[in-house]
């Protein structure tokens, strides 16, 4: 069981994490807009997360914390 926690307030919705995730469990929120005005990334299926941290490694805003 691993977990990718996205700080939505820091996320700028660039989508680099979405592309980097080998399990394809990240999306840019279709319905949410954060205080900065971006659609933040979100994890759609946390149970599939392996904690590889690829999303966090590619995040230019250091918005992702990964636990494993």
């Amino acid at each position: 069981m691993a977990k990718a926690i996205i700080d939505e307030t820091k996320c700028k919705g660039c989508g680099l994490c979405v592309a980097a995730c080998p399990r394809k469990i990240l999306v840019l929120s279709p319905d949410k807009i954060n205080s900065k005005g971006y659609r933040p990334a979100q994890v759609v299926d946390q149970s599939k997360c392996t904690g590889c941290a690829s999303c966090a490694i590619m995040c230019p805003d250091v918005a992702i914390t990964v636990e494993r």
Binding site: T9, K10, K12, G13, C14, G15, L16, K36, Y38, I57, M58, C59, P60, D61, V62
Partner: peptide, 14 residues
């Protein structure tokens, strides 16, 4: 928070 544009890789390098 970084002041860079979304997706700008400065943040990664920082």
């Amino acid at each position: 928070p970084f002041t860079y544009c979304p997706g700008c890789t400065h943040g990664i390098i920082h």
